[in-house]
C-alpha cells in the first residue's frame, strides 16, 4: 500500500463518521439496513450472538454471500477476516469489499501475529481495548479503529471500558513533556511515532468507532458522547424484536447523540432489545476481547 492509498483509506473512514455500521447476514438484511440509514454494512455468515451460541470455528464468509450483499446495496460493504488470516483478507480484497475487519469475533488463525495490513490496498479496521493496542494496529496499517466490546452480548460495558481507557491514556500523553514519550511508548508497547502523534494532537490519527454490545439508541449515543466517531451494531439489530425500527432509531440517536429529547423520542416503542449476557458470568475463555493483543 502506498502512502497516498493509506490516506484515501483513512479518508473513507472519515466519511463514515456520525454513522451506524450494521452486521447483516443476507442481501435482504443488507437492504433493511440501507433503508434504515446505515452508512455501511458488515457482511458475515452468523451474527456474534449466534457464533457464541453455536460455537465451533468461525471463519470468513462464503464469497457468494458477500457478493450477493455487494450487489444488493449501494453503501460500502465491509467483511470480516480472522485475526492473522492474511489469505482470507486476500480473498476479501479480490471480492472488492470496501473495508476488511480483522476481527476477534471470528476464531483467530494466528495467536501471535496480526495481518501486515500495509501489504493490501483495501482498508482495514481493527479492534482495540486500549491505546497501545490501537496504535499497534495502526502501526500494522489499520486505517480505522473500533473498541473491542464483547460482541454478541448486548452489553455495552466493555466498549465503555475500552473507550474510557483510550481517552484517559490519550489525555495522559498530551500532558507529558517530550523527554517522557519514549518511556510512555515502552510502557504501552506502541510505535514511537504514533505515540508522538497522539501526544501532539490529543487524538488517534484515524477514525475510532464504538463496537461490541451496543443494543439500544441510548447505548449508541453514550458511545458518541464518550467521543467515538460512529457506531458498529452487530447482533443488537437483527436479534431484536423489530430490526427495521430499532435500526432506524439507532441511526437517529447517533445523529443527535447530544440531544436527550431526540434520544427519548426515538427510544419509544421500538420493540424488545436483544437478550443480554452479563460479562461477569462469561468464562474467561469465552471473552472475545482476549483474542489478539
Amino acid at each position: 500500500m502506498t502512502d497516498s492509498r493509506y490516506d484515501l483509506n483513512k479518508n473513507l473512514a472519515q466519511m463514515l463518521k456520525g454513522g451506524v455500521i450494521m452486521d447483516v447476514t443476507t442481501p435482504e438484511e443488507a437492504k433493511i439496513a440501507e433503508e434504515a440509514g446505515a452508512v455501511a454494512v458488515m457482511a458475515l455468515e452468523r451474527v456474534p450472538a449466534d457464533i457464541r451460541k453455536q460455537g465451533g470455528v468461525a471463519r470468513a464468509s462464503d464469497p457468494s454471500m458477500i457478493k450477493g450483499i455487494i450487489d444488493a446495496v449501494s453503501i460500502p460493504v465491509m467483511a470480516k477476516a480472522r485475526i492473522g488470516h492474511f489469505v482470507e483478507a486476500q480473498v476479501l480484497e479480490a471480492l472488492g469489499v470496501d473495508y476488511i475487519d480483522e476481527s476477534e469475533v471470528l476464531t483467530p488463525a494466528d495467536e501471535d501475529n496480526h495481518i501486515d495490513k500495509t501489504l493490501f490496498d483495501v482498508p482495514f479496521v481493527c479492534g482495540a481495548t486500549n491505546l497501545g493496542e490501537a496504535l499497534r494496529r495502526i502501526g500494522e496499517g489499520a486505517s480505522m479503529i473500533r473498541t473491542k466490546g464483547e460482541a454478541g452480548t448486548g452489553n455495552v460495558v466493555e466498549a465503555v471500558r475500552h473507550m474510557r481507557t483510550m481517552n484517559s491514556q490519550m489525555r495522559r500523553l498530551t500532558t507529558m513533556d517530550s523527554h517522557e514519550l519514549m518511556a510512555a511508548a515502552k510502557e504501552i508497547r506502541a510505535p514511537f511515532d504514533l505515540v508522538k502523534f497522539v501526544a501532539e494532537n490529543g487524538k488517534l490519527p484515524v477514525v475510532n468507532f464504538a463496537a461490541g454490545g451496543v443494543a439500544t439508541p441510548a447505548d449508541a449515543a453514550l458511545m458518541m458522547q464518550l467521543g467515538c466517531d460512529g457506531v458498529f451494531v452487530g447482533s443488537g439489530i437483527f436479534k431484536s424484536g423489530d430490526p427495521a425500527k430499532r435500526a432506524r432509531a439507532i441511526v437517529k440517536a447517533t445523529a443527535h447523540y447530544d440531544d436527550p429529547k431526540v434520544i427519548a423520542e426515538v427510544s419509544e416503542n421500538i420493540g424488545e432489545a436483544m437478550v443480554g449476557i452479563n460479562i461477569s458470568t462469561l468464562p474467561e475463555e469465552e471473552k472475545l476481547a482476549k483474542r489478539g493483543w
Binding site: 463514515l16 463518521k17 454513522g19 440509514g37 452508512v39 455501511a40 453503501i75
Partner: peptide, 10 residues
C-alpha cells in the same frame, strides 16, 4: 461528504 442515502434519510 458522507453517505448520501443516510444523510438523505435523516
Amino acid at each position: 461528504g458522507g453517505e448520501s442515502t443516510t444523510i438523505g434519510k435523516l
